Computed example of a mutant assay.
Amino acid sequence: MTRILVLLTALTALLVASPAGAYWEYGHQTIAQIAWANIKPTTRTRVLALLRQQALLGTPECKAGTIDDAAIWADCIKGIKNPDGTQKFGNTSAWHYQDVNICQPFDLIEACKDDNCVSAQIVRDAKILADRRAPTADRVRALVFLIHFVGDLHQPLHAGEKGDKGGNDVKADYGTYTASRLNLHSIWDGYLAERAISTRPSLVRRYPAAERGQIAAGSVTDWSRESWQVAHDATYATAVGGDPCGPTPTRAKLDNATIERLVPTVRLEVKRGGLRLTKMLDQALG
Results as ranks from 00 to 15, higher is better:
I122S: 10
E110L: 03
S180F: 13
R206M: 13
L57S: 13
I147M: 07
A216R: 05
E226G: 00
D125Q: 11
P201L: 10
R272C: 06
L268M: 10
I72E: 13
G242D: 07
L268Q: 09
H158M: 14
L56Y: 14
K271H: 02
R181C: 09
G79Y: 13
P83E: 04
D164P: 02
K271F: 07
S202L: 03
Q104D: 06
A196D: 00
A231N: 02
G163D: 02
P208N: 04
S202W: 05
A209D: 12
N101L: 04
D282S: 01
C76Y: 14
G213A: 05
V140L: 12
G160P: 01
Y26K: 07
L5C: 12
G65W: 14
K171F: 03
D222S: 00
I215K: 05
V204R: 06
G163H: 04
M1E: 12
K165H: 04
L268F: 03
T221Q: 08
V240T: 13
L15Y: 15
L48D: 15
I80S: 15
I39S: 00
R205A: 13
Q29C: 08
I122W: 13
A55Y: 08
P201Y: 10
A284R: 07
G190F: 04
M280N: 03
R205W: 14
N168A: 07
R205G: 13
R272F: 06
V170Y: 05
